[in-house]
Nucleic acid binder design. Structure first.
Length: 187
DNA sequence: TATCCTTTGAAGAGT
DNA sequence: ACTCTTCAAAGGATA
């Protein structure tokens, strides 16, 4: 932990020198998506493509299927919609992930740029930097991610109306169920 | 090969 | 109502 923190601090110090250079490329990626793949989304929030084209909800597929979320109540006997991702590359039924929160969306957008910027590959160190950058953002700057996260939650609710976060509780096997307490006591 | 590390925020569980 | 815990992403490190 100390090792990662130290590494992140060094990286962050170096990163500060380049802070003015950081950042604009991701929006260009969105525009690429708009210009090359997607429908006309010129009227929507610039971050919405990140949500709309998210493989969380619409993974790449050669035979896209229409969403039938509420159209077949009999297929929803467990108060969940049938999974629209049925081929092998799609997420199996019962493995619906939590919608991303604002910070997760920020990380997803900025990770590649920060990774390239600091020439660091370890996600734990990058996440420390991203956490600092996130906290350094103004509330106005953060608000677009909170807005997007709200859209993410609404879309998730529409796609998986019966889903609950508890569905994924206990899916991971943890060696230490009190990891956070252990960390706090060890630091 | 599975889990950890590390961050913030949402949501469920427990008190 | 409040606190605690888990899980979302990511990819290198570790057991």
């Amino acid at each position: 932990m100390k090792r990662l923190q130290h590494r992140a601090e060094n990286i962050y110090a170096n990163e500060q020198r380049h802070v003015s250079q950081a950042s604009s490329c991701k929006f260009q990626e969105f525009h690429w998506s708009l210009n090359n793949n997607g429908p006309d989304l010129s009227g929507v929030h610039p971050l919405v493509p990140l949500l709309i084209y998210s493989d969380r909800h619409f993974p790449p597929t050669s035979d896209p299927q229409p969403i039938r979320a509420h159209s077949d109540p009999q297929a929803n006997s467990h108060s969940r919609i049938p999974c629209i991702h049925s081929n092998s590359t799609r997420r199996p039924m019962g493995a619906v992930k939590k919608p991303l929160n604002a910070f997760m969306l920020y990380m997803k957008e900025m990770r590649a740029a920060v990774r390239q910027e600091v020439n660091e590959r370890e996600s734990a160190a990058i996440n420390c930097i991203l956490g600092r950058k996130w906290n350094a953002l103004s509330r106005a700057e953060q608000s677009k991610y909170f807005d997007l996260a709200q859209k993410e939650r609404l879309l998730h609710l529409q796609l998986y109306p019966g889903w609950s976060a508890r569905d994924n509780y206990g899916k991971r096997k943890r060696k230490d169920n009190h990891r956070k307490i252990t960390h706090d006591s060890s630091s």
